[in-house]
Amino acid sequence: MRAGILRSPSPLPGFGLSFGIMMTVLSIVVLLPIGALLGRGLMIGPADLWDMVNSRRIWSALTLSFRAALIASLFNLVFGLLLAWVLVRYRFWGRRFVDAAVDLPFALPTAVAGIALTALYAPNGVFGQALAPFGLQVAYTEVGIWVALVFIGLPFVVRTVQPVIEELEPDLEEVSATLGARRTHTLRRVILPTLTPALLTGFALALARSVGEYGSVIFIAGNIPNLTEIAPLLIVIRLEEYNYDAAAAIGIAMLVVSFAMLLAINAIQVWSRRRIGNV
């Protein structure tokens, strides 16, 4: 068995070379930085790590970061599905333009996005002025953080769900209709189950991206400790104090929670695949 680890598991040629390159790149790009972070955590020791993380301000920041990411990603889950559906199933004037615009949040520097959203939603901005009579304030509140995270997370859901909808046979829906199913029934029992794995992947990607987002959020959040201060900003503040250990501690806390969440999403995915078969 042990000698067989690097033996080609498939008759396809080139396993050794491609596996080697893959592992090297993965190590340099992903595993090394995360390993360095965890290594630092090991040097500090679990008890000290816990002490550094266990304060009201850090808990508020962590809860805020994960809560806002969750809310924004749930919104993107619904709205991204709708957007992808419209883009695939309907032909309308300007469709290609909308299709291209979906990728903009990927391309735009996040700081630009943050400043633009702040300018729009600030009390003297276009949206801010429109919302003010209703007593709604978006910029410099938690809602502002949601708005920024919705903006940066949307393409993840759209771009993962879109190809799956394209593969979806309209025949299936027609069959469902001829068998007497109502539209909502078809949607619930035919379409959504097929899309679930892709939706979950998109949701997980958007969530992972939003949890760590810094650039756009600091402009639109008020950055008030315990209220609108996100965990990544606390990391930056700890770095400003040259307290690399405390910064690493918050980083590790975020890593652990994110990992647990992604693991849970993966488990749901495996379960849903098993339930509806592999699509």
Binding site: L32, P33, A36, G39, L239, Y244, A248
Partner: peptide, 9 residues
């Protein structure tokens, strides 16, 4: 450089 972990990279 491992001393200050990720930053020094």
């Amino acid at each position: 450089y491992l001393r200050s972990g990720i930053l020094t990279a």
